[in-house]
Each structure stands twice: as structure tokens, then as C-alpha cells.
Write a protein that binds this DNA or RNA. Structure first.
Lengths: 337, 337
DNA sequence: CTGAAAGCGCTAACAA
DNA sequence: TTGTTAGCGCTTTCAG
């Protein structure tokens, strides 16, 4: 502890003066650079302690041309979408690796035109040294932005229209396939699916995985309804499916949210789950354990997704050229099918 | 659109030169300052467009001594605690007001000693102009940090040991009282409670609200067990309560998470909810709608909490002295008691 | 209204 | 191993 009420943060010059050395010497000591005698080094250290010196991050940033921070940007069209617990867990993953560095984390919710403009500004004014960009939609203007950004960009998930150079994604297609195969293996033959938004990479990939599995099994794959990834969308889609194919005996649903909506419709329709109709969801959200019956679903490693995005960005920032990463998903069986 | 591949961001000097004016004039135009002739003003504007000039945020920050960002810090002892959807919604609220400003949002998860040190560093190096600090525990070292920080600090929730000067809180005590009164009004007489962590302001306030209501009703208030705000804690506490008071007919549970755990125990014990035992939770998390039966609970305005924290911080930063705020909570009745 | 000049606090190239 | 000297890019007095 030093002075209780430091009027002003001491500057490097003051440290240098107090230690009786030049400013550059002080600077070297503080940055653990070589070419400083033991004696001076200690004098500076002492002065730093005495004065309670802390280097001014902004000044350093200006001199080194490095902001000292990275940004996690969530793109989308709904300002409330970040409330999805999914992102919170990504943040924890990201933080777990940033914590070991000196980099600060900025959060940019580019979920409105104003938000997107701000992100663009953030990047152009060089307030961040790198970007992690999540949840791109089909025609997302941010894709372009990312392409000619002057800092490294890693994508979380793959957008539909192009394959980013650097990304981390969950194996959505594989997971959907797994889920559907599980249904097939259980003897189900009339299998439908409720898809998520098909203008998102994840939504499309899950549909493809579903189709992959049915193709192999030689089953009909035309029982498809879109639920937009929303709970009420799931209800509506389930209603339509029941209408179109009263004899369906299983549904692969591209998100647990939608599955919850669908379960409600099934219950109301008097169908027993999983007796009459088997259901498999996707995401393994917390609620999935508390539905009736507990939901069989596909778990994706969200924490790892965040962690690997951050790792990849660090690699990029230090000049490496990491390979894209696809993280495995796995089936969590809750209600026996 | 301008040059496709700008080698380097243009500087203010380049703009000035191109416009044929002094750098100070250019600076004034860019900051909408007065004392610039119409002609020059337009010349500068044109130059800015032509060159695609964007001011360098770091340089500006150094000159103005303002970082241009604020930080939302979550303190605690569990690195995963941010995964609680609660925080995600706070973030959305905070963002909704920051979006209208030029301020960037930094996120600091001070949930480990390393994280706390980093937050401290962040503040000392002046990388942020203000702090929103959430979820302080009883002996949280960050309280002190906040006290003598050189930037404005607003608290989200009130810590136990001291009353911050500026805070936004939900009416936890009032909500708990409401919940308990609801139980009393339903004719319940043997009412227990499962508390959250009592070293947190919210945990303690909810216990007090419970006691308030029972005191008024003149009922016994000794049926208290601690569940630490965790699902398994709720199960354990419920088991103990059933043991201590097999005749209990209602439980006020300080979080929905714990309520979910408790419900499971009750079901296993063959107690009908709400027939034999009435339950009221707290927080109104998404899962609360999907329990069996749907959970009656206390909703707190999380989005508003974030929004008001941000507003208060802005007020503080502009020199005002806002009053603390307590946001109302309300009962959400799902399963008839 | 206008521009010159002096910083903001730190880093880094270059001589010594 | 040292210290001197320029910057980094922008803002802001202060004379004119």
C-alpha cells in the first residue's frame, strides 16, 4: 500500500526521476527488456513500488499501435438474442483463455443497424486487435466487414454463403445425423424434422444431417417444417406436421426450444412421448432436463467453442495460421426412445 | 465507398493537407466545434470522405484522458457463474443504453483471483471510464477496490456489508414477502423456506422478506434451510425440511434453480404439488415454465436492471449525482396454489 | 475565424 | 549498458 489518496497517477518520468535513471531505462525495466544494470533495475522497481506506478494503457497502446483488447461480436437481427444462455457460455469459454493474457474483452452486440455501425466503427478506429464474430445470417453485412477488416477475424460457426478462412464450429451436421440415426435404430420409420432458420449455417447443417441419415436408411425425408428456432415456431410446425402426417412416429427437432413447443402440442394431441412419437432435440439446454419427458438431445461443447475461438484468435494475432476447427457433438439420451 | 485497399488509415494531418487547412481546423470540423468557416468546413468534410478518414480512438483517448469505454464486472467465486442466463439479460439491458452513446462495453469476469487482479489492473491503468459491478459477496475484496477507484462505480445489487453510494437493485425483500404472503393467503400455515447464499445481499434480503410476511401472519418462521442457490442444494435442503417437518404445507424457495431440485424431491416423496405442498420460487427463469407443475415464482426486471445501471453510470460520468434505485419485483402465478 | 505549438504518457531507434 | 530524441495521432490553449 502507498499513499491513500493519490491525486494523480504517477507517470513514467516521475518514476525515472525518483529512481535517478533515464526514462528509457525505466521503460525497459517495466517491460522486462534487457540492457539494464542490476542496480538501476532495482532502483526502478523500488520507485515503482513507492509511487504506486501503473503504466497508462492508452499511452502504451498509442505508442505500440496495439489496442490491447479483442472483441466478441454477436451479429443478428434480434436485440434480445444475446439473452440466449448459449452466448453466456461462449463468453465464459472465451474468458477462460483471455484471462491468461493481458488482453481485455469487449462485447459488441451487433443486433441492430446501430449496433452493426458501432462494431464497424470499433474496428475502423482500431480499438480492438482482433475479432471473434458469431452467428452470421445469410445476407449478413458483417461478413463483408470481416473480410476486409484490418485485424484478424475468427468466426464462430460458419455462415451459409461463404467459407471463412478461420473458424470454429460445432459439428451440427454430424450431430443431427447422430440424432436421426438414433431414431432409425429405434425402429422409427416415419420420421419428420422441425428445422431452425435455414438462413443460418447451423440451421441448414442440421437439416442436412437429418437428410444424410434418412438417405442411408432409405426413408422418406420430405416431412420438413420450419420453426425458426423459436418455441412458438416449434408448436406451429408440430401442428402442421401432425396435420400432414398423422402417422408420424418420430421428429428430429433442430433446437430444444422448439422441442419444448412441440412437446406441448403433442401432449395436447394426446400422443405419448416417446411411446407414440420419439423426439430428439438439439443444444442440450438446461430446460431439456425438466421437460416431460426429459428430452433426448444433442449436446454441443459450447464452452470449448468459446475457448477455441479465443485460442485461434491469439494464434492469428501472433502470426500463426491455424486450421479451422470442428468440435464434436454428442447425443444425450434422456427418455428411452 | 473509397479506396478498396487502404494501406494505412489516413491521419488527421493528411485530411488537413488535402483540404488545405490547418490540422486544428480539421479537428474542429470533425468534433463539430465552432469557429470554422463554412467553406473550410465543407472542404474538410470532403477530404474526410475522399480519404475515408476515421479518427484514431486511442490517440483521442490519450489526448482527452478518456478511455471511451465502461466495464461491466461480475464478481464472484465461481468461474462458471456468468453462464447464468441472468447476466446475459443484464448485458442486453446495459447494451440497450450504451448503444445510444459512443461508449464501448468491456466485460470483466472477476470470478477468480486472476480475474480480480485483472479488473483491478483495468481500472488502475484507466482503460475504462466507469464501472458497473455486480454480485458482490460478503467479504468481496472488490468492494474496497470499488470504493477508491478513480472512476465512477455503480453497483448492481447491494452487498451485505455496506451500502454503496450508487446502486440499482431489485426489490428482493419485497418480492419474497409477496411470495410468502401469497402462500399465507392460500391458507398455508406450516411454511418453510429454502434460502440462497446468505453472504449475498439478494440471498439475505429474500430471507428477510419471508420473515416479514410470517411475522405479520404470526406464523412460525424457524423452518429454514440453506440451498446455496444451487439445484442440488435445493434437493438437499428439501430433504432436510421434510425430515424436520413432515407436516409442512408450503415452501418459499429463494431461486427457481433450487425449486427445481426441491420439486424433484417432493415428487419422489409422493407429495403432490400444489395439492399437499405449495411452492413459490424466485427469478422466473425460462425453465420455470416447464417444470411439473409450472412454477409460481417472483419475476425481477433483469433487463431494466441492466438498463438502469448503465443510465446511472452515464449520469455519474456526466457529473450528476443520481439516487439509488430499487426496481419492483412481481409475483407470477403459474400453478394455482 | 485561424493556425502554431505544446502536450497526453509511453516506446523504440539510434548514438554514445 | 546508457540516455537522447523522435515520434504514436489527436486535442487544446493561446496568440493573431
Amino acid at each position: 500500500m502507498t499513499t491513500e489518496t493519490p491525486r494523480r497517477q504517477p507517470t513514467l518520468d516521475e518514476v525515472a526521476e525518483r529512481a535517478g535513471v533515464s526514462r528509457s531505462a525505466a521503460s525497459r525495466v517495466i517491460n522486462n527488456a534487457p540492457h539494464v544494470s542490476r542496480a538501476k533495475r532495482e532502483a526502478v522497481r523500488r520507485a515503482v513500488d513507492d509511487l504506486g506506478y501503473v503504466p497508462n494503457a492508452t499511452a502504451r497502446a498509442l505508442a505500440t499501435q496495439q489496442a490491447g483488447s479483442v472483441v466478441l461480436a454477436i451479429s443478428g437481427d434480434d436485440p434480445g438474442m444475446f439473452a440466449d444462455p448459449f452466448f453466456a457460455e461462449v463468453v465464459v469459454g472465451v474468458n477462460s483463455v483471455l484471462e491468461e493474457t493481458e488482453l481485455e474483452l469487449m462485447l459488441s452486440l451487433a443486433t441492430s443497424s446501430r449496433g452493426q455501425a458501432r462494431l464497424e466503427q470499433l474496428l475502423r478506429t482500431r480499438q480492438a486487435d482482433g475479432v471473434m464474430l458469431m452467428s452470421l445470417h445469410g445476407d449478413d453485412p458483417l461478413a463483408a466487414l470481416a473480410a476486409n477488416a484490418s485485424v484478424p477475424v475468427v468466426f464462430g460457426g460458419r455462415p451459409l454463403n461463404f467459407e471463412p478462412r478461420y473458424y470454429v464450429d460445432a459439428d451440427n451436421r454430424g450431430g443431427a445425423r447422430l440424432a436421426t440415426e438414433h431414431l432409425v435404430a429405434a425402429g422409427r420409420r416415419r420420421i419428420a424434422t422441425i428445422t431452425g432458420r435455414l438462413d443460418e449455417g447451423a440451421g441448414m447443417a442440421r437439416l442436412q444431417g437429418f437428410q444424410d441419415a434418412l438417405a442411408v436408411a432409405g426413408l422418406d425425408n420430405t416431412l420438413v417444417e420450419n420453426g425458426e428456432f423459436r418455441e412458438d415456431g416449434g408448436s406451429i410446425a408440430m401442428t402442421k406436421l401432425l396435420d400432414r402426417a398423422p402417422d408420424l412416429d418420430a421428429v428430429f427437432i433442430a433446437s430444444d426450444q422448439m422441442a419444448i413447443g412441440a412437446l406441448r402440442v403433442l401432449a395436447r394431441a394426446g400422443r405419448d412421448v416417446p411411446g407414440d412419437v420419439s423426439i430428439v432435440g438439439f443444444n442440450d439446454i438446461t430446460s431439456a432436463r425438466h421437460t416431460e419427458p426429459p428430452l433426448t438431445t444433442v449436446n454441443q461443447p459450447i464452452h470449448a467453442l468459446g475457448r477455441e475461438m479465443a485460442r485461434m484468435l491469439l494464434a492469428l494475432m501472433s502470426g500463426d495460421q491455424p486450421s479451422p476447427l470442428i468440435l464434436p457433438t454428442q447425443l444425450v439420451i434422456r427418455s428411452s426412445v
